[in-house]
């Protein structure tokens, strides 16, 4: 199977760089998979889990928003926050969610509120997913 170059960087550091088979990216309009030879694409990310497949092995990385760019040289993900699933701080995530809930309650009606609610939903989905897999 053909491989392609994949890089994921957060402002603090470069998390991963190398040849991979497939990457599943949580896009803002829905998840999409990237294989070698994908058409050029720029997409926004939503908070979610990004799955990297290298030779049959899967590696999962939590991203909290950012961008993905598929270009002639490969896929580049610029994430706001990127942590591998094993390292993520569940307590910090829960704290973030409760802070957001408090914020949403105080906000006035408007597109800003809608956006915040959508973000909160993504975070909650992410949390359910993480705690769900932790139990298995």
């Amino acid at each position: 199977m053909a491989t392609f170059h994949f890089e994921i960087a957060s402002p603090e550091r470069l998390l991963f760089s190398g040849e991979v088979d497939q990457v599943d990216v949580p896009g803002s309009e829905g998840d999409f998979g990237v294989l070698a030879g994908h058409a050029p694409l720029v997409a926004m990310l939503r908070p979610g889990i990004l799955t990297v497949t290298i030779g049959g092995e899967q590696q999962r990385i939590v991203v909290l928003g950012g961008f993905a760019e598929v270009g002639p040289t490969g896929l580049t993900v610029l994430a706001d926050v990127a942590t591998s699933v094993e390292d993520i701080d569940r307590a910090a995530l829960a704290a973030e969610i409760s802070a957001m809930e408090a914020r949403v309650k105080e906000m006035e009606q408007g597109s800003l509120l809608d956006r915040e609610i959508a973000k909160l939903d993504h975070f909650k989905a992410l949390q359910t997913h993480l705690t769900g897999t932790a139990m298995h």
Partner: peptide
């Protein structure tokens, strides 16, 4: 770099949002 100009991107959502 190399052919960047020739590659026209698809945008998701649209270009201006991004």
């Amino acid at each position: 770099v190399d052919g960047g100009a020739s590659a026209s991107y698809e945008y998701e959502p649209d270009e201006l949002d991004i």
